[in-house]
Nucleic acid binder design. Sequence first.
DNA 1: TTTGAAATGGGGGATTCACCTCATTCAGCC
DNA 2: GGCTGAATGAGGTGAATCCCCCATTTCAAA
Lengths: 260, 260
Amino acid sequence: MTSAKKRKADLQYGVITLRNVIGYNHLCDIVEQENAPRQAEQKFEMSHFTAVIADDHAIVRSGLKVALENERLVDGHNIGVVAEAGNGLDAIAAVKQHRPDMLVLDVSMPVAGGVEVLVETRRWSPDTRVIVFTGISAMGKVSELVEAGVDGLFSKAEDNQDLYRNVPMILQGGRYISPFFTSILDNAPQQSVLTDRERQILNLIVAGQSNKEISAHLGISAKTVDRHRTNLMQKLDVHSVAQLIAYSLREGLIDPAAEI
Amino acid sequence: MTSAKKRKADLQYGVITLRNVIGYNHLCDIVEQENAPRQAEQKFEMSHFTAVIADDHAIVRSGLKVALENERLVDGHNIGVVAEAGNGLDAIAAVKQHRPDMLVLDVSMPVAGGVEVLVETRRWSPDTRVIVFTGISAMGKVSELVEAGVDGLFSKAEDNQDLYRNVPMILQGGRYISPFFTSILDNAPQQSVLTDRERQILNLIVAGQSNKEISAHLGISAKTVDRHRTNLMQKLDVHSVAQLIAYSLREGLIDPAAEI
DNA sequence: TTTGAAATGGGGGATTCACCTCATTCAGCC
DNA sequence: GGCTGAATGAGGTGAATCCCCCATTTCAAA
């Protein structure tokens, strides 16, 4: 009971958009399922695997398709790409329909992001191995993915051989995070030292709201917002709104394309 | 003479990094060369073309290589990829060495960006047709590329058929900007209403510097910086640093990955 | 049960920001 | 020569920021 409450708190302010899209009670259900043991081991003897590819760039999808279906790259494994998706919703639909052995996923996609697709895949097709192949390096997103239980995590900026070599192991139930990302996680100095409330207020600050506006929005005193702001800046070692926003950008906390 | 001076002014503060890397007098020389007529017509009868691919993601390079070398995609044209580059400097080196018929280029690359590679290519291999294939949509970068005289401009977010279909025409001396980007250029409201100095100060503001720091950096009074800041915000119709940064991000004036 | 972390709020002060008005210099243009 | 636009700089005002001080309450962990 207490652990459920804690989990609830952990998810509450993680990323605002995520909470708005599917609701955080729903999210808790997903985490319950995700923590249940998976039965991927029964596929040990199979030689043919199905895959779904989700990336907003067609050139990446076609490149991945060629690479995955060429057994000389992914050694000894016969992989067939049964569906491609150019956005998050299409990816979720494809997973529901095909329930593939693996899903290769980008993080930044239109309509629904990689994290949403990951948790929805766990819900509708828990046996699907989810491999995230992305160009981002923002610490926030990376830790989100790992906490959500991604099975494989590879960077587009690195040599693809790392991906091809580890696909068989992941298909057999293994889990692999590329050194590119583990070093990002290791080098995170204070990472998630921010409290839920601080994270929430950071989102409103970078949205361009003043202390007064934030206080009205949250129904608390402007002085309290100021208090949180001070703690925030001390923790992150920045000394102005501009630096605060620059930090948030690097960590992927805000969406550059979002309107003010 | 007057037009040359005007061009000089246009380039002076376009993007600070660009000016720092190669110097703006050098840039003017490149523009002179770029405006000179090209002699690509002599290749009308050739059946084999050489290409260099530059993209920081290996999966995109391999996908492009497969697509370009498949004559069913690029109809009737035999294209051979003679070199690949994962960053801007490698791309420039490859162009110098191979002087290819075409260069397929991404905009956001490590070490040197797509615009720098484009102007350097014009300098060292003026006959090379430069095709930019990118995922960005920031108005600033797009207009920069068009002004620099890119031969083809295609979006990764759109259907790749548009690229494949137009490569032969571009190889024969044509020029093609995808509708995806022309609509971005058309919808630009006021674009370059900012003066050179204002653009420069905007860059320092979004870098997190205070008026005092900026005044010290530029050797002018803090009051003058304040003056520019006020004009800046009036022109862009924003009322806080946060909104200012959000604007700069949308227009691609700053690099989200840059350190403070 | 104590301890501590987190959220809440208040007072105050130094600094900076945002936005006025006004003036000068210097370049290019008709 | 006069005009315009850009850059420069001064003075001032009200608001907001940044950072101290202080306190209470709640809740979970030791």
